[in-house]
Simulated scan of single mutants.
Amino acid sequence: MAIALEHINFIVRRLTIEEKYPGGWEQCLIDHASSLGTRVWYDEHLFRDGAMNPIDMENLVNAWRDIGFQAVLINGEKKWLDCCVIDENFETLSLSCDWIEIDITGEYAFLKDEDPSEIVGRHGF
């Protein structure tokens, strides 16, 4: 599966949410229930939240960092670690990320080495 990209996308692996989110995956869904199908959607591997401007995205990244997610690893190279940001306008990652791929059109993203045959997004979530 894959997740549709829209505006500025904040993406986290579900496995990482299970390990680091206070209360795990179940609590994450409870905490984001009011946004499901509007700005939040997910597949079996990835969770997507989003923003329409860089300031809101920075606030979103900082909120996840405050609960224990490491956004950027700096060891001679800046790259996304527990989460990543993909800007739809540029159809690219703002920094490199080892665990995600973006389709050639920039319309969806998927966990590396997984089949992106079905796309989950706002429509039909």
Rank of each mutant, 00 (worst) to 15 (best):
L36W: 05
D56A: 09
M57V: 05
E91R: 12
I11G: 00
E44C: 11
G121H: 00
W64Y: 15
D31V: 10
S34Q: 10
H32M: 15
I17M: 02
E6P: 02
P116F: 04
M52T: 14
Q70E: 13
Y21M: 01
L81P: 11
S117D: 07
G37I: 10
K79C: 07
L29E: 07
G121L: 00
R13S: 03
F69Q: 04
H45V: 03
E118Q: 04
S35V: 03
E118W: 00
E19F: 03
D82R: 04
N75K: 07
F110A: 04
I11D: 02
G24Q: 04
N53T: 08
I74G: 05
Y42C: 02
E114M: 13
D113R: 08
H123I: 08
R39G: 07
S35Q: 10
I86S: 06
N53Q: 05
L29F: 06
K79Y: 05
K78Q: 11
Q27M: 15
K78I: 12
I55P: 01
S96K: 10
D113P: 01
E44Q: 12
M52Q: 08
I67D: 04
A63G: 05
P22H: 00
G121E: 00
F110D: 04
E6A: 14
G76L: 04
G121I: 01
D113Y: 06
S117C: 05
R39L: 11
D66L: 08
D103E: 14
I8C: 07
G23C: 08
D115M: 05
L81S: 15
R13M: 03
D98P: 15
E91L: 10
D43T: 14
